[in-house]
Computed example of a mutant assay.
Amino acid sequence: MTPSAETQSAAQPLTISYSPCPNDTFVFDAWAHGRIPGAPAPDVTFADIDITNGMAERGESDVLKVSYAVLPWVLEEYALLPCGGALGRGCGPLVLTREPGAAKDLAGKTVAVPSERSTAYLLFRLWAADEVPGGVGEIRVLPFHEIMPAVRDGLVDAGLVIHEARFTYQNYGLHCLADMGQHWELTTGLPIPLGAIIAKRSLGAERLRELAETIRTSVRMAWDDPEASRPYVLEHAQEMDPRVADQHIGLYVNEFTADLGEDGYAAVRGLLTRAAAEGLVPPLGPDALEFA
């Protein structure tokens, strides 16, 4: 039997799941290492975004970093927190190919994507609806770190990449066919919604507000003393060049990480409304994004 918010001990660790990517470890470092007075102790699980999306659908963690694209399936059980996530400008997913080309060249082709319930995939599908006559062909889901090698080796015709691949795809001899974020920004004027932080509604409104403040504090502490988080970031960065890790943090941790604000919420609503109109996600209710 699940304990109520009233009977759940404040000292009981909260289960939290996020990726080992530099932006997440940077954001959560202070909280994960007990440097925030009065904050609940987090029991951290590292998992790639496709895994955490599935965990959210199964209700397997108290707090998770997920794709904004998965929200329509989980908002009955989880609340969107107004901080800690990833939105921004100039940080969207890229479509990569072995040779330079144009969007029309993808018609009927095989494209590798990191997840069919990722924000990257929604942005890709909205872009393709506008730019690829007749649509793409087979969609193949691969772990994001396998996508660039698959494109390079000719196993797929193109790949949709995220995260640090923006900075490293040239190392694989690949070309950027299109920037999904650029298309989104040009057509909407809004920032690009990528990753969200969600928490179980059963924790109760007061505790959700406390969690949001804990995450904001962790973000501010990381900004105030970036070197404090460096060991944690590099430990989990999968042998990433420290300079790439710094670029990654600089791109994905910004003012929207501290607070979604009006533009952030508008971006999330805009993405999910357009995706619902294309039949990619279920429609959201009018109050679905309301915080505690």
Score class of each variant (00 low, 15 high):
G54E: 07
V95C: 12
P282F: 03
Y78I: 12
I192K: 05
A79N: 00
F167Q: 07
F291E: 06
Q8I: 01
L186Y: 02
T168S: 14
D157N: 07
L271E: 01
E262W: 12
S67C: 07
M221Y: 05
Y78A: 04
A196D: 02
P20K: 01
V268F: 11
P283R: 00
L160R: 12
H175L: 03
E255D: 14
R35P: 09
L87P: 01
L234D: 05
G108V: 11
A128C: 12
G59Y: 03
G154M: 12
G101E: 00
F291S: 00
W223M: 10
L284M: 09
K200Q: 15
L106A: 02
L81D: 00
T187S: 15
L234Q: 13
T273K: 14
G189L: 04
L186V: 03
A47Y: 01
L260I: 02
A276H: 04
V233D: 02
Y252N: 04
S67H: 01
P282N: 09
G90Q: 10
A245R: 00
A267M: 06
C21L: 14
A120K: 04
P40D: 02
E185S: 11
E213I: 02
P72R: 11
H248W: 01
S202K: 13
L203R: 08
G34W: 00
R269W: 09
A199L: 08
A277D: 14
G264R: 05
L211N: 05
A103D: 13
Y265H: 07
P286T: 00
A277I: 05
A112E: 06
P72S: 01
K104D: 15
S67N: 14
V111A: 03
L174V: 03
T110Y: 10
T187C: 04
V63R: 11
L123V: 05
R230M: 14
T7S: 15
Y232R: 11
I49A: 06
S67G: 12
P226V: 03
Y78D: 11
P13A: 06
I192T: 07
C83D: 01
A150P: 13
H183G: 06
V219Y: 09
A288P: 00
L14E: 03
A56E: 11
E57A: 14
R201W: 10
E239T: 06
P242S: 07
P20Y: 11
G84F: 00
T97V: 13
S115P: 02
M180D: 10
V268I: 15
P82L: 11
A11K: 13
I139V: 15
E131T: 09
D287R: 15
C21D: 03
E164I: 10
V156A: 02
V161Q: 09
Q247Y: 06
I139W: 00
A39D: 05
V63H: 04
L87D: 04
A212T: 10
D130C: 13
D241T: 13
P3V: 04
N53M: 08
H145F: 14
A212Q: 01
V156E: 10
N53I: 07
R230N: 13
L190M: 14
L126I: 09
A292N: 03
L203P: 10
E57S: 14
R207N: 02
